[in-house]
Simulated scan of single mutants.
Amino acid sequence: MNAAPLASARPPVLRRLGPPLAALAAVTVPTVYLAVVDPNAPGHYPACPFLTATGWWCPGCGGLRCVHALAHGDLSGALHDNAPAVLLFAVLAVLWVRWVWAAVTGGAAPRIALGARRWVLVGLLLLVFTVVRNLPVGAGLAPPLI
Protein backbone atom coordinates (compact mmCIF):
# COMPACT_ATOMS: atom_id res chain seq x y z
CA MET A 1 0.00 0.00 0.00
CA ASN A 2 1.40 3.39 -1.01
CA ALA A 3 1.30 6.07 1.59
CA ALA A 4 -0.13 9.34 0.35
CA PRO A 5 2.25 12.27 0.70
CA LEU A 6 1.64 14.24 3.82
CA ALA A 7 -0.01 17.61 3.27
CA SER A 8 2.29 19.10 5.90
CA ALA A 9 5.49 17.93 4.17
CA ARG A 10 7.90 20.75 3.50
CA PRO A 11 8.85 21.53 -0.09
CA PRO A 12 12.43 20.74 -1.09
CA VAL A 13 15.11 23.25 -0.15
CA LEU A 14 15.64 24.40 -3.75
CA ARG A 15 11.98 25.30 -4.03
CA ARG A 16 12.10 27.14 -0.70
CA LEU A 17 15.17 29.08 -1.92
CA GLY A 18 13.30 30.25 -5.04
CA PRO A 19 11.70 33.41 -3.60
CA PRO A 20 14.83 34.76 -1.86
CA LEU A 21 16.95 34.03 -4.93
CA ALA A 22 14.37 35.72 -7.16
CA ALA A 23 14.47 38.75 -4.87
CA LEU A 24 18.28 38.75 -5.09
CA ALA A 25 18.09 38.69 -8.89
CA ALA A 26 15.53 41.51 -8.86
CA VAL A 27 17.97 43.64 -6.84
CA THR A 28 21.13 42.55 -8.67
CA VAL A 29 20.02 43.50 -12.19
CA PRO A 30 19.39 47.22 -11.49
CA THR A 31 22.43 47.35 -9.19
CA VAL A 32 24.67 46.08 -11.99
CA TYR A 33 23.13 48.67 -14.31
CA LEU A 34 23.83 51.42 -11.77
CA ALA A 35 27.38 50.12 -11.33
CA VAL A 36 27.96 50.44 -15.08
CA VAL A 37 26.00 53.61 -15.89
CA ASP A 38 27.37 56.28 -13.55
CA PRO A 39 24.66 58.53 -12.07
CA ASN A 40 27.36 61.13 -11.37
CA ALA A 41 27.62 61.80 -15.12
CA PRO A 42 24.95 64.22 -16.32
CA GLY A 43 22.27 63.07 -18.72
CA HIS A 44 21.94 59.44 -17.70
CA TYR A 45 19.06 59.76 -15.24
CA PRO A 46 16.26 62.31 -14.79
CA ALA A 47 16.57 64.96 -12.11
CA CYS A 48 14.64 64.58 -8.87
CA PRO A 49 11.28 66.37 -9.27
CA PHE A 50 11.36 67.55 -5.64
CA LEU A 51 14.86 69.02 -6.10
CA THR A 52 13.83 70.63 -9.39
CA ALA A 53 10.68 72.16 -7.88
CA THR A 54 12.07 73.31 -4.54
CA GLY A 55 15.86 73.38 -4.78
CA TRP A 56 15.99 71.10 -1.72
CA TRP A 57 17.42 67.60 -1.55
CA CYS A 58 14.69 65.09 -0.75
CA PRO A 59 15.41 62.04 1.48
CA GLY A 60 15.91 59.92 -1.66
CA CYS A 61 18.23 62.32 -3.46
CA GLY A 62 21.61 60.71 -3.94
CA GLY A 63 20.13 57.21 -3.72
CA LEU A 64 21.31 56.20 -7.19
CA ARG A 65 24.76 57.61 -6.48
CA CYS A 66 24.74 55.75 -3.18
CA VAL A 67 24.06 52.44 -4.92
CA HIS A 68 26.74 53.23 -7.50
CA ALA A 69 29.26 53.95 -4.75
CA LEU A 70 28.35 50.76 -2.85
CA ALA A 71 28.65 48.71 -6.05
CA HIS A 72 32.20 50.04 -6.35
CA GLY A 73 33.02 49.39 -2.68
CA ASP A 74 33.03 53.08 -1.69
CA LEU A 75 31.23 53.05 1.67
CA SER A 76 32.23 56.60 2.63
CA GLY A 77 30.99 57.93 -0.72
CA ALA A 78 27.73 56.02 -0.29
CA LEU A 79 27.24 57.45 3.21
CA HIS A 80 27.92 60.94 1.85
CA ASP A 81 25.40 60.50 -0.96
CA ASN A 82 22.56 59.07 1.16
CA ALA A 83 23.26 57.77 4.67
CA PRO A 84 19.70 56.54 5.40
CA ALA A 85 19.77 54.47 2.20
CA VAL A 86 22.98 52.75 3.35
CA LEU A 87 21.28 51.94 6.67
CA LEU A 88 18.21 50.65 4.83
CA PHE A 89 20.35 48.47 2.54
CA ALA A 90 22.16 47.00 5.57
CA VAL A 91 18.86 46.16 7.28
CA LEU A 92 17.49 44.62 4.08
CA ALA A 93 20.67 42.56 3.65
CA VAL A 94 20.34 41.16 7.17
CA LEU A 95 16.68 40.36 6.57
CA TRP A 96 17.54 38.66 3.27
CA VAL A 97 20.19 36.50 4.97
CA ARG A 98 17.64 35.54 7.63
CA TRP A 99 15.17 34.71 4.83
CA VAL A 100 17.71 32.45 3.12
CA TRP A 101 18.54 30.79 6.43
CA ALA A 102 14.85 30.17 7.09
CA ALA A 103 14.48 28.69 3.60
CA VAL A 104 17.46 26.38 4.11
CA THR A 105 16.41 25.23 7.56
CA GLY A 106 12.67 25.14 6.84
CA GLY A 107 11.83 27.86 9.34
CA ALA A 108 9.44 30.74 8.93
CA ALA A 109 10.49 33.74 6.85
CA PRO A 110 11.28 36.84 8.93
CA ARG A 111 8.50 39.34 9.32
CA ILE A 112 8.77 43.09 9.69
CA ALA A 113 6.23 44.39 12.15
CA LEU A 114 6.57 48.11 12.74
CA GLY A 115 3.78 49.69 14.68
CA ALA A 116 2.36 53.12 13.94
CA ARG A 117 4.68 54.81 16.45
CA ARG A 118 7.79 53.38 14.80
CA TRP A 119 6.59 54.43 11.32
CA VAL A 120 6.03 57.94 12.66
CA LEU A 121 9.53 57.87 14.17
CA VAL A 122 11.03 56.75 10.84
CA GLY A 123 9.13 59.54 9.09
CA LEU A 124 10.34 62.12 11.60
CA LEU A 125 13.95 60.93 11.27
CA LEU A 126 13.71 61.23 7.48
CA LEU A 127 12.21 64.72 7.86
CA VAL A 128 15.06 65.78 10.17
CA PHE A 129 17.58 64.27 7.75
CA THR A 130 15.99 66.18 4.87
CA VAL A 131 16.07 69.49 6.71
CA VAL A 132 19.61 69.05 8.06
CA ARG A 133 21.08 68.02 4.69
CA ASN A 134 19.67 71.22 3.19
CA LEU A 135 21.22 73.50 5.83
CA PRO A 136 24.82 74.74 5.67
CA VAL A 137 25.67 72.66 8.76
CA GLY A 138 24.55 69.48 7.00
CA ALA A 139 26.13 70.12 3.61
CA GLY A 140 28.23 66.97 4.05
CA LEU A 141 25.02 64.91 3.92
CA ALA A 142 24.01 66.27 0.51
CA PRO A 143 25.20 64.66 -2.71
CA PRO A 144 27.29 66.88 -4.99
CA LEU A 145 25.52 68.89 -7.66
CA ILE A 146 26.05 67.69 -11.20
Rank of each mutant, 00 (worst) to 15 (best):
R16L: 08
N134Y: 01
R117A: 15
A47K: 08
A93N: 01
L125R: 11
V94G: 11
N82R: 02
G55R: 06
R111K: 09
D74M: 04
D81R: 03
C61F: 02
A26T: 12
P143E: 00
C61N: 05
A26G: 14
A83N: 07
A142P: 11
L95H: 05
D81N: 11
G60L: 04
W96S: 07
L21A: 13
V104P: 14
S8W: 02
P39H: 09
G63F: 02
R98C: 10
V94F: 08
V29Q: 09
R111F: 06
P42V: 03
V104S: 09
Y33K: 10
P136K: 07
P46V: 04
V36K: 10
T31N: 12
L6S: 15
G106Q: 06
T52G: 13
G107I: 05
G60R: 07
L87W: 07
V104L: 11
L24G: 12
A22P: 09
V132W: 02
G18E: 10
T130V: 02
W56F: 14
T54Q: 06
V137L: 09
G106K: 01
P110E: 05
P20S: 08
C48R: 03
L64H: 05
V67E: 05
T105F: 05
N134L: 04
L79W: 00
G106T: 01
W56S: 12
M1T: 15
T130R: 00
R118Y: 14
T105E: 10
V27Q: 09
L51I: 03
P39S: 10
A69Q: 07
F129C: 07
L6N: 13
W57T: 08
L124S: 12
P49V: 01
V128H: 10
L64D: 00
A3L: 13
P30S: 06
V132R: 00
G18Y: 00
L126E: 07
A71F: 04
G77A: 06
A22T: 06
L92F: 09
A9Y: 01
A25Y: 08
S8R: 06
